[in-house]
C-alpha cells in the first residue's frame, strides 16, 4: 500500500484534529500520565526502526538500525510501564482505607 502524499496529509491532519478533540477532555489531574502515555504511543517509531533493520545490509545500516530499535524499544517499554505505575497510584477516596479495614477485620476474625 503506497500512500500518496495527499492521502498521507489527509490522515495526518485528521489525526491531529482527533487528537485535539480527545485530549482536550483529559483533566489536569491526569496530565502527567497523559504525557507519558502519549510518549509511549510515539514509541510506535520502533516499527519503522524494525523495518529499516530488515533492509539493512552494511555496517552503517546496521548501526543506525541498532540505535533506532534500541531507542524505540526503550520508549515503548519504559513509557507504558511508568504510565501504568503512575495510574496505579490514583485512587478515589475510601479505596485504600476500605482495603485497610478489611485487613483489620480479617485479622480480628482470625484472632477470634
Amino acid at each position: 500500500m503506497n500512500l500518496d502524499l495527499q492521502t498521507a496529509l489527509t490522515v495526518f491532519v485528521l489525526s491531529v484534529l482527533v487528537g485535539f478533540e480527545v485530549i482536550s477532555k483529559v483533566p489536569t489531574t491526569l496530565h502527567t500520565p497523559l504525557m507519558s502515555g502519549a510518549n509511549s504511543i510515539h514509541g510506535v517509531v520502533v516499527i519503522g526502526a524494525m523495518l529499516i533493520a530488515s533492509t539493512a545490509h552494511d555496517v552503517l545500516g546496521y548501526v543506525l538500525a541498532f540505535v533506532a530499535v534500541a531507542f524505540g524499544a526503550m520508549n515503548v517499554v519504559g513509557g507504558y510501564v511508568v504510565t501504568d505505575r503512575m495510574l496505579h497510584m490514583f485512587r478515589a477516596r475510601g479505596d485504600g482505607s476500605r482495603q485497610r479495614s478489611t485487613d483489620t477485620k480479617t485479622t480480628s476474625e482470625a484472632k477470634g
Partner: peptide
C-alpha cells in the same frame, strides 16, 4: 511515517503532536 509510508506512524505522531501542543 511520511518517509516510510507507514500510516500507523503518521497517526500516532499526529496524536502525540496534538497532545503536546495542547499541553
Amino acid at each position: 511515517g511520511f518517509v516510510l509510508d507507514e500510516s500507523a506512524l503518521i497517526i500516532a505522531g499526529a496524536l502525540v503532536g496534538a497532545s503536546g501542543g495542547i499541553l
